[in-house]
Nucleic acid binder design. Structure first.
Lengths: 225, 225
DNA sequence: CACACTTTGTGCGTCGGTTCACAAAGGGAT
DNA sequence: ATCCCTTTGTGAACCGACGCACAAAGTGTG
């Protein structure tokens, strides 16, 4: 209530932000199943985290729980959604309509969470003009125009690695400040632009590392140089 | 070189492991371009990290650099590849051949890094039997048989959320201990099994959070209740 | 109203990771 | 061989995150 003890501080830890979508998903499932109230313990299990961590995370948003009872599911869904900015409608453009771009365009998880695929863009004349997931694929020459016309604020890059930086520069130039990059390259962008990266092969490599340890670890010779 | 000061300890920090594939990619690019030697500073820039961090990361593998000179590109590629277990051939099965599964099957980044898509499996009779990326899609009933016959050690789950846990249980039951999960659910597995999760919509939600901050932040009223 | 029980919110110790800054080590020139 | 320059490898301070454990706060019952 007071400014100093203001519950929703600007400073929500990055680690917490990364988990909020997880909680949200678990809560949505509960809401569908008609659960009205949930304890931190139960929600923590559903989200796969420690309950103390969950409570601390939620405490960063405010005091939305009731001691002795738990959290109201609907209310918490709303609070987390609002905090994440999902109460507004985000227009997303997908650039690069190869296999991955197509998969993303058809992915239900976007639509259901306040995201709207507003444009599909590709360079290949073979693909431009096609209808995918109810959208017309537009030519990369129209990139800037489409972004501005449709009010796109988040761009998903699903282009080949070689094209990613160029496209990135162009979308940054028209004011996009949030990019989700699937291309296996390190994008260079101004400080003010947020880039998140998903690299499918990196995840596999990390798994391979652990798998190797498991398989060879205990027996592994002290070894070769 | 000596046993006591053995360079390759068992304890490589998780954060380091997660970055090794990044370095590897940068190094491969350099090798292709014919660069023989690289300084920690240059490699750090290419990988998008701090150079001190990079040196500390590499130091966990051993002393593979030369002071005053830098790192030999080819040699470092080999050392990192070996550490990650990429010098062996990993058979990967993709379960769920929807849009995403198809995209993954066709993704070049796997093959090029020691991974081999050894099986595609789906439950939909409409899809079973199809040829995708040169592979025949097999029926989910064959799951256990295929995994064992082909020596699959890593399974990629690209099924609908509802099916993921069931498939997971089955592959764990036949001894798979590394799973890459694209389904938006928290899988429950025994301690000994490694699950890595990629959730496309979570990444977007994190972007939305920051985008909202950028947009509304500076002007945002002290607020609503 | 008082007491027993449940569950939140958080203070605090701990741990892993990041960064700085520098000594140690190698290369090359004179 | 000596000196200077470059670059690695790492000690140590710092920072954020995690999780324990508990006081505070609420519910419900008799």
């Amino acid at each position: 209530m007071k400014s100093p003890s203001h519950p929703r501080d600007r400073g929500i830890p990055e680690a917490t932000v990364a988990r909020l979508p997880l909680y949200l998903r678990a809560l949505n499932g509960m809401a569908e199943r008609g659960t009205a109230t949930v304890s931190s313990e139960d929600l923590a299990v559903a989200a796969g985290v420690n309950s103390a961590k969950l409570r601390k995370d939620l405490s960063h948003l405010g005091s939305y729980g009731t001691r002795g009872v738990g959290y109201d599911v609907e209310y918490l869904v709303y609070q987390i959604s609002r905090e994440l900015g999902l109460t507004q409608d985000w227009a997303v453009a997908i650039v690069g309509v190869g296999n991955l771009g197509r998969a993303l365009a058809n992915y239900g998880g976007f639509v259901s969470r306040g995201f709207r695929v507003a444009a599909l863009i590709d360079a290949d004349p073979e693909v431009v003009g096609d209808d995918i997931a109810g959208l017309n694929v537009e030519h990369i020459d129209e990139l800037e125009a489409v972004i501005q016309r449709r009010g796109v604020s988040i761009v998903v890059l699903a282009t080949p690695a070689a094209a990613a930086q160029k496209v990135c520069d162009r979308v940054v130039a028209v004011g996009v400040t949030s990019i989700l990059n699937f291309a296996p390259v390190v994008l260079s962008v101004p400080e003010s632009v947020d880039v998140r990266k998903v690299d499918l092969s990196i995840e596999l490599q990390i798994l391979a590392f652990h798998e190797q340890r498991k398989a060879g670890g205990p027996l592994m010779a002290v070894d070769s140089q």
